[in-house]
Nucleic acid binder design. Structure first.
Lengths: 110, 110
DNA sequence: AGGGAGGTACGAAAAATTTCGTACCTAAGG
DNA sequence: CCTTAGGTACGAAATTTTTCGTACCTCCCT
């Protein structure tokens, strides 16, 4: 069972769920941006500049969280996102390298 | 440019297109089934037992073909599908291993 | 205490994807 | 030659996903 905030444990992660999460252009951009960051970096959910309303943003971050790709941490009145790099690498070895190789898409093609 | 039948060349393959192709449950099943086969096996498009009409089947195989995941070859009056294993491995190393590890889903879960 | 930034939940609208039916084509086999 | 199996193209229906607006909550700051 996922934890109360909806984070699955490492072995609850499912490849098809992860692929669906990454299939959306905005979500891919978020993950690719995190992959390009140094290890353990936390970023504001707002810092990705997604061209959508905040309720849509909540929706996308929920899907990323429930797929196990990111961990969201409460930091006072805002929420930070961190890539679950080790868990992803352990469960789906090589996936992060593939995303890193593809790079962060430009906003317009996504 | 893709060839006349819509197969992209190796370096025209795009990770996001591939991920979108794999995000559909039926298409994932097809690819996972091909991954589980020995190298170079060709299978009838009908042999996967997809629970959809033939026009829908055409649609899904087109998406797989245009993503570069399979190559479709005319064999008289029918068409065979073959995994583009080497191209996929060259362009997205590790991806096939991830799919192989996930296994072929049971029909009911997708 | 009050205002503002950042978030979530919920329901509905909009857009994209999947699905099917029909019509049509080609090749293989009787 | 005719039938049948396997496919494609096109348009429309059904479903899913994305998107947004509104209402509401919490924490920080003044």
């Amino acid at each position: 069972m996922p934890d109360p905030e909806g984070h699955p444990s490492r072995d609850e992660m499912d490849l098809r769920t992860v692929l669906s999460a990454l299939a959306d252009p905005l979500r891919f951009r978020v993950v690719a941006a995190l992959v390009a960051e140094p290890e353990r970096v936390e970023r504001h959910c707002t810092s990705f500049g997604l061209p959508v309303s905040k309720s849509t943003r909540t929706h996308h971050f929920r899907i990323l969280r429930e797929a196990g790709l990111i961990r969201q941490v409460d930091r006072g009145n805002s929420r930070m996102a961190r890539l679950r790099r080790e868990d992803i690498e352990a469960r789906f070895p090589g996936l992060i390298a593939l995303i890193a190789e593809a790079g962060v898409p430009e906003p317009q093609d996504a």
